[in-house]
Design a protein around this nucleic acid. Structure first.
Lengths: 334, 334
DNA sequence: ATGAAAGCGCTAACAA
DNA sequence: TTGTTAGCGCTTTCAT
């Protein structure tokens, strides 16, 4: 069995409170400090964080719920958050809910039982009823990448609308007027924002909206492939396409490949998120990128402010700008 | 504050032991069962897993330590493991050690304090001294993808040697004799195994080994790019290359792109791991793939057997076969 | 089947 | 500064 503070109290002849005080950075007489440190060394003592958590009612665990770990954007955000959290003494309890609303609810329940101090999530649901219960029971919630309609909580977003608008504008400036878009799952916040950005660009250039230029790729690789095919078949005049996330970009490229479409001669292409993938494609793809590290940093910040500084201020939303990486996938028509 | 079993004892007029018994699937008189369930419902009671863990000395948490979450192979393995673990009531505590030995040691220490029931890891170190301490203190360790030299623990591997050998054989059968290889970090188990497989194939075909045909890509994208460049510059006669992991394959393709090399006419190519990436490339790449779901399943199995069935048998190693997905990246020279 | 009571390892009053 | 004590919420004997 592992040593407890009792053991080291016995060994040093000191009281429990002294040991506890030492462990928590309190003042301990120099010679006792040495005594304690020796005992800790000898007995291989390590604080039992479980017991501590029971007593303090704080587990120093942050629950993270995401739709798919198997998505480079999310996994990178998680990796960054875990890094920062651990540097602050917090552990990361991960739940992948596979883009499933029921699983999301289960994950929330699961983490609640585990008494996590807070939950950071890229939510799958639109409303966020379960998250609301969580927050009402005193557990801070921070959402990342998506805003919940039914819950007023801290939220770190990327300005997808502006990012998308300016990307589509690049296509327009290159002379394109028949621009397709491959969107994600309908209900998701980012889908709507990106579609609005697309409309913004079209409207401003006085290009008529055309529903046949919009295909839903469901945020999946297969969906992206299907969507690209659909767009190409439906729209002979389409000269450019904008793809709204990484998975669908991969799928779209697989299909481009399959159909033997040549980029950018036959089709101009703007993708999303993954710099390495974009660079590995022939020709290199132009993409919209998100500031992953900043997203993670801000999200953890929001959480720690509430947890450590006991911040009670109203929820606030942080919006970060996207960036653009140019490749050779846009053909100038003019 | 959240309700405790005390609250529901008070409300039902029953004793603590009865409630506890109910919660743990013991026998409770029908009418008391109903009473308890009502109280649980009304008070929104949820077991405090922290208190339970303190008492039972089991946290139902599995620590996972991996080199890089931002690596699709690892993130997919983690996602699968988390899924299975949660279905068994276990939580996943994730630590990304960024391929850093010091961070790996810190992660082990961190998880030890957190009293995780077991640790599953893709280890970064070769020896595994810290893992050994962990195991000696009674916490089961399962390694995935890599074998630790200094520790006898359960281990789930992929037969990289055979997989690599047969991939290289395909190149040889297609008439290639000048075959380059981009390997990973020198000390890593899988690097050695894959290199041995490469040698096996060459030796069997009586092709002389040539050190200039081996380039180290450090398992990174940039490393893969550099390695490809190095190979091409050093070996004018090289007609094929085998790349030993996903990141390096991406890097190599970026460089292929950069140098304007045409696959497979100028260079035949076999990559690793990621089916979607391979399909998105022009032409589609041939790759060696690993059975990710099985790896995860077996690893969790090993862990749960020790935890739940109290299995004390000696450590065993499970080896799974690789698979091959053909693309159009191999040129037949004969 | 149920209740009373002890105790898991720690922290936090409170007293000394 | 240090020791004593109570108690966090649960499980688990041991009686009943």
């Amino acid at each position: 069995m592992a040593a407890t503070i009792k053991d080291i109290a016995k060994r040093t002849g000191l009281g429990l409170a002294t040991i506890s005080s030492y462990l928590n950075g309190g003042n301990v007489r120099e010679k006792n400090r040495i005594l304690i440190e020796e005992a800790i060394e000898e007995l291989h003592f390590e604080v039992n964080e479980i017991a501590r958590g029971l007593k303090t009612n704080r587990t120093k665990i942050i629950g993270i719920i995401i739709p798919e770990l198997n998505n480079p954007f999310f996994s990178e955000v998680v990796a960054e958050m875990e890094d920062i959290l651990r540097n602050h003494g917090y552990a990361t309890m991960l739940c992948d809910c596979r883009t499933d609303e029921k699983r999301e609810a289960e994950a929330i329940e699961f983490l609640k039982k585990r008494r996590v101090d807070g939950v950071i999530s890229v939510p799958v649901t639109r409303e966020g009823t379960y998250f609301q219960e969580l927050q009402e029971s005193g557990i801070p919630v921070v959402t990342v990448d998506r805003k919940l309609e039914g819950l007023d909580c801290d939220c770190v977003l990327v300005d997808n609308r502006v990012g998308t608008k300016s990307a589509v504008e690049r296509l327009i400036q290159a002379g394109h007027r028949n621009i397709g878009i491959i969107t994600g799952k309908n209900d998701v916040y980012t889908t709507k924002e990106r579609l609005l950005g697309y409309y913004d660009a079209l409207d401003e250039a006085e290009i008529e909206r055309d529903d046949s230029m919009i295909a839903n790729g469901q945020f999946t690789i297969q969906g992206g492939a299907n969507a690209l095919k659909e767009l190409v078949e439906k729209n002979e005049k389409m000269t450019a396409v904008y793809v709204c996330n990484y998975e669908m970009m991969v799928g779209a490229m697989i299909e481009v490949n399959e159909l033997g479409i040549r980029i950018p001669i036959q089709l101009s292409f703007i993708g999303f998120d993954n710099i390495e993938f974009a660079k590995a494609c022939v020709p290199r793809l132009s993409i919209v990128t998100q500031p992953i590290k900043d997203i993670a940093k801000e999200a953890v910040n929001c959480m720690l402010e509430r947890l450590e500084d006991g911040k009670q201020t109203p929820a606030h939303t942080i919006s970060l700008p996207t960036d653009f990486m140019g490749g050779e996938s846009i053909q100038a028509l003019n």
